[in-house]
């Protein structure tokens, strides 16, 4: 790969709470190439949203990006640049789309003004000129009658329309990177597909990189070319998307795939990964997935696995890489043996 657009190196975002230090993102590294659509997948609490927010330094106290973390973007380290500089990047070179389009919009301002605000901050456009640009951008996202819609308030729009407004807001400055944090989770399935199509279309039209953050492997399969799987604050697997669906290496990724309901496969109940993510204040020693893993052995409790190279562009944080034959002898995970599984 040529020079990546965004290079995250050893990102650690900790929350210093009274209950202890929550190491929500704990040494994450990955690159996003120019024009690439990269996915980050993982369940709630794995640190994927905190990673996304960390890129634009949107973490609020008691959260903190720890020293030694690097977020290299267009020659600058966003982890350490001044407030002034990071504000110049936000909404301008990197923009974000959030999960809940209702609560992500301010209820007391019309949507046109909220979209226009981006151009007023970054280009110093007048209120009128910015509003006109906002209407153009709203049209790009496929909102019918954008000039009228722009004067409406968030509560007057449907969920899909609101998400288009947020996308327009993210597109205003034609950024180099859009971070989409669960952009379709709050939407109906049919609307989900429309929004994903729209994002893909805009991405190819403007050659914008997209970092797609989701818990939904279906979204990953539909939109991205490369995928990062996160678990317990770490990257546990990284792979081109076909490679991952063909041959997931990490037992957690495997579990995620099994948990996906499939049409045609009739089952009484959904497959689940037993147990829950451990608390971020208290990651287990060794492999963090060990207690929920059907293949774990002594090594997993002793040594924290590094990212093993599995194939071309495919890495996995699992000791199975050195003892692959153990995959043939699964056992009930420790959480099940100890009787603490809830599923």
């Amino acid at each position: 790969m040529t020079e990546p657009l965004l290079s995250i190196q050893d990102l650690r975002t900790y929350f210093h709470t009274s209950a202890g230090v929550a190491r929500s993102v704990d040494g994450v590294s990955f690159d996003v190439g120019a024009g690439e659509m990269l996915g980050i997948v993982g369940e709630s609490g794995c640190g994927k949203s905190v990673t996304a927010l960390s890129i634009l330094r949107l973490i609020q106290p008691p959260g903190r990006i720890e020293p030694g973390s690097h977020i290299i973007f267009e020659g600058k380290d966003l982890a350490t640049v001044s407030e002034e500089d990071i504000r110049g990047v936000r909404g301008n070179r990197i923009s974000m789309i959030f999960q809940e389009p209702m609560s992500a919009l301010n209820p007391v301002f019309n949507v046109g003004d909220q979209v226009a605000e981006v151009a007023r901050i970054h280009e110093g456009l007048s209120k009128k000129a910015a509003f006109a640009r906002a209407v153009e951008t709203l049209a790009l996202t496929g909102i019918p009658a954008p000039a009228e819609r722009a004067k409406e308030y968030p509560h007057q729009l449907s969920g899909g329309m609101r998400q288009r407004v947020l996308i327009a807001m993210a597109l205003m400055m034609k950024p180099a990177l859009i971070i989409a944090d669960e952009p379709t989770t709050a939407l109906d399935v049919t609307i989900q597909a429309q929004i994903l199509d729209l994002l893909r279309d805009l991405q190819s039209r403007f050659n914008t990189s997209v970092l797609m953050i989701t818990h939904d492997l279906g979204v990953i399969a539909e939109t991205t070319s490369r995928v990062i799987v996160m678990y317990a604050g770490e990257v546990v697997e990284e792979s081109p998307v076909e490679g991952l669906f063909a041959a997931a290496h990490h037992p957690y990724t495997e579990g995620l795939m099994h948990a996906m309901p499939q049409i045609g496969h009739e089952r009484d109940r959904l497959n689940v990964i037993p147990g829950t993510v451990p608390a971020p204040t208290d990651w287990p020693h060794g492999c963090r997935f060990r207690d929920r893993c059907p293949y774990s052995w002594e090594l997993c409790g002793r040594d924290h696995p590094p990212l093993y190279q599995i194939g071309v562009g495919h890495v996995s944080r699992c000791h199975l890489a050195i003892e692959p034959e153990r995959r043939n002898h699964p056992h009930p995970p420790l959480v099940v043996q100890q009787g603490v599984a809830v599923a």
Binding site: L53, L56, L58, Q60, R87, G88, V89, R90, G91, N92, S95, M96, F98, E100, S103, A104, L105, N106, P107, V108, F109, E117, V118, I121, H122, L166, M169
Partner: peptide, 27 residues
């Protein structure tokens, strides 16, 4: 201040003062 639309305002590149006086105040 902890609501989602304040985070959206931050992600647009607004100053903390503008967020407080414009987005938060009106609500």
């Amino acid at each position: 201040m902890p609501l989602d639309f304040i985070r959206t305002a931050r992600s647009k590149g607004l100053r903390e003062r503008q967020i407080l006086l414009h987005h938060a105040m009106r609500n």
